[in-house]
Design a protein around this nucleic acid. Sequence first.
DNA 1: ATAGCTGCAAATGCTTTGCAAGGCC
DNA 2: GGCCTTGCAAAGCATTTGCAGCTAT
Lengths: 140, 140
Amino acid sequence: MRAKKTSPADLTVLERLRTAGLRPTRQRLALAKLLFAQGHRHVTAEGLFNEAKDNRVDVSLATVYNALHDFTEKSLLREISIDSSRSYFDTNVGDHYHFYFEQTGKLQDIPAERIALANLPEAPGGATVARVDVIIRVRD
Amino acid sequence: MRAKKTSPADLTVLERLRTAGLRPTRQRLALAKLLFAQGHRHVTAEGLFNEAKDNRVDVSLATVYNALHDFTEKSLLREISIDSSRSYFDTNVGDHYHFYFEQTGKLQDIPAERIALANLPEAPGGATVARVDVIIRVRD
DNA sequence: ATAGCTGCAAATGCTTTGCAAGGCC
DNA sequence: GGCCTTGCAAAGCATTTGCAGCTAT
């Protein structure tokens, strides 16, 4: 067993936080590791909070919310609003869309290339498009 | 001035409620009139509640929520979730998408024909598509 | 040293609920 | 009359905030 001080994975995550301009505190690092160490994920604040507890990471729910929002602000995450009182954070910040399974409440990515969004109307009044969300809601 | 008991518009709205299988009570009728009497609209529960007050329609906020949900359930309305704590009800239940103006918090319809959604991936596991939401978020 | 974080608990704000009273069919 | 609706106030929930104490740099 080696000391769990700084594994390669930690360094990557640490770099990521620093680059984003976020201080790599103990809890942010721990949360970032949970989020980014295993491919793309869709998490809720509550879900991440529980996961943290399961991994003996001691953080408060408020801190989880803060971290999630900080990450989102720095484009490390993307927030997806399914309905009032169910919003997910997606570690995939690239261009893509989603399937939402109404029964299970789960999300699944859809690569941007899979959907042809043609003839997008001009945003009125010279507005600029911040983002395009596409959610395909399916009933199993 | 004619009596305001039953104008043609009222009858239409009344029919609409009955057809949907909703009892046309005083408050549902009043709310439905506000909603359907003037073209397509995007309202929030709070907004409709205030509008009702302005029109001397005396309903409680809970009733507004109930009515909105009842209407949505009967497909008289469609609910659009912008983010946690901001959801709109759209009187246009046809196929269409939306612009969302982040500064003003307003919605604008985009006719379905204006966007080509091609090659929609099969919903996994034989699931059926309940609805496709497209929200183009713009910054003025 | 110090600007930025965190934890806790209380506060918010939107939405839902419970139940008695009222109204539509 | 019977059952669905309403109103009110209270409850619920997810999320945010205030502030004292910590901590990364």
